[in-house]
Nucleic acid binder design. Structure first.
Length: 457
RNA sequence: GGCAGGGUGGCCAAGUGGUAAGGCAGAGGUCUGCAAAAUCUCCACCGCGGGUUCGAUUCCCGCCCCUGCCUCCA
């Protein structure tokens, strides 16, 4: 089975064929760096991390580009509020973003371009648009894109320009030829960062950034463009309008959009204020739990966020870690092997991670069963490790997963030794008392043939 | 109003024209000194009403309900 993916452009699942055999160019809309990233961002990054990992697994040479929007109204406002330098703010937030992503086991993209270092490309693209009569300088001094000049406008989002206007919530702006026209270049206001341009001092609009950076690093036509569902319109629609009008290229051939993270069945978003940052969540849960939670649902479906859901993800991970711990006790020298067919089929089918996880759990059960029966499980053990490595979960040491690695464990070990002695003397009352004492501290004991292990419950 | 995507066991969540993966939770058994872990067994008539079909949860039509986009948003 070859890779099939759901293309938002056609609304259908299609067989993936790269432009150039063996190579894939992929652009994902990154974050605007004015604040810590939230769980919604985590989902995008994890989802496309899986896409990236899987494409690489299939043998493609992937050029994965993900941008940082580091010039924007919100950044300017936040910097002013906090009374810090814009660059200091964006640098700090980019650092924080990288920490969050590392915790989530997201591989770094091939390239992470910043908007502020691509002014020349954006200006050139805007010039091309003006030259082709697709853009104009408005009476306010901004450069605007003339939406009606682009025939295919609305194709990605399935919208009709006239429908958009009739039910429009777009501000009517006298300087616009058409209410839907959007800003390519904003005329500078005093005190705001600005760059030289043929239209005077100013800064780029949001949409032009992605068109310019993707085309620069991946070419005018490239394979995959992705991002959150909310970017489909108008952001991605505008990206297409800009890039195609300026370059003639086809722009992205496959568009992938992930579903939202919801809270109480409502979209998590900055504007609603109902969001949790990744750092807030990882205060109480290991980042792998968040990753597991995300992988448990197909990327295009909505995902309801709650503590209960995270608890369930954690419980599932614990189960896998139990298997990992047992494997650690019984095997040596695990080799990397190919992945099982069912797992590959799942991921080839539009990145069906829930199905892939089901394969992992089934493999886990087979291993436990065989280990109980003292049968050979070497193949499954290798499959198990390979699947987990691909998914980027259960990558911690099993002992530290269960026991933590920063706290003093001498006291625990001492009590365990005492209990072992009591058990030997068949003083079960004493042994159970010790177990209860530890349980009160949140420590659960497990007696196995090879001794007693413990974990934090 | 326009457009898009959904409604599957207590919860989460895959999937298929021929009677439904997996996880969490629960019940019972095995194992264990007892537990824990592991393992086994059990737990769904797939929103409602029609239609097509030998047969539909899966296709078509209608209805109800939910969410999203149409403004910045991952």
């Amino acid at each position: 089975m070859s890779l099939q993916l759901h293309n938002s452009l056609t609304g259908k699942k299609e067989v993936f064929k790269p432009i150039e055999a063996g190579k894939v160019g992929m652009y994902i809309c990154g974050v605007t760096v004015y604040d810590y990233s939230h769980v919604g961002h985590a989902r995008v990054m994890v989802v496309f991390d899986i896409v990236y990992r899987w494409l690489k697994q299939l043998g493609y040479d992937v050029n994965y580009v993900r941008n940082f929007t580091d010039v924007d109204d919100k950044i300017i406002a936040r910097a002013a509020e906090s009374n810090i330098d814009i660059q200091a703010l964006t640098d700090e937030m980019i650092d924080a973003f990288h920490q969050d992503m590392d915790g989530l086991e997201c591989l770094r993209p091939s390239l992470e371009p910043r908007a502020t270092t691509h002014m020349d490309e954006m200006i050139a693209m805007i010039e091309a648009l003006i030259a082709r009569d697709c853009a104009y300088v408005s009476s306010s001094g901004d450069v605007l894109y003339a939406v009606r000049s682009f025939e295919g406008y609305g194709q990605l989002s399935g919208k009709d320009i006239d429908d958009l206007e009739s039910g429009s919530r777009v501000d009517v702006d006298e300087s616009k030829r058409d209410p839907l026209d959007f800003v390519l270049w904003k005329k500078a206001k005093k005190g705001e960062p600005s760059w030289d341009s043929p239209w005077g001092q100013g800064r780029p609009g949001w949409h032009i950034e992605c068109s310019a950076m993707s085309c620069k690093h991946l070419g005018n036509t490239f394979d995959i463009h992705g991002g959150g569902m909310d970017l489909k319109f108008p952001h991605h629609e505008n990206e297409i309008a800009q890039a195609r009008a300026a370059n003639d290229g086809q722009f992205a051939r496959y568009w992938l959009h992930n579903g939202f993270v919801n809270i109480n069945a409502e979209k998590m978003s900055k504007s609603l204020g109902n969001f949790f940052t990744i750092r807030e969540v990882t205060e109480n849960f290991h980042p792998e739990v968040l990753r597991m939670f995300i992988l448990g649902t197909h990327y295009r479906s909505p995902l309801d966020f709650s503590d209960a859901a995270l608890d369930a993800a954690k419980a599932g991970l614990d189960r896998l870690y139990e298997t990992k711990r047992r494997i650690g006790e019984t095997t040596t020298g695990i080799e990397q092997v190919s992945l099982p067919q069912g797992f590959c089929d799942a991921l080839n089918d539009d990145f069906n991670t829930p199905e892939a996880l089901a394969e992992v759990f089934e493999c886990s059960r087979r291993i436990n069963k065989a280990l109980d029966a003292e049968e050979d499980v070497s193949t499954d053990i290798q499959y198990f490790a390979a699947m987990l490595a691909l998914l980027g979960i259960v990558q911690q040491d099993a002992a530290s997963w269960f026991q933590g690695n920063d706290e003093d464990t001498d006291a625990i070990e001492k009590l365990l030794a005492e209990r072992m002695q009591a058990k030997k003397n068949r003083d079960f009352a004493r042994a159970d008392a010790i177990r209860d004492t530890l349980k009160a501290q949140g420590i659960v004991l497990e007696d196995t043939a090879s001794g007693t292990t413990w974990k934090r419950g």
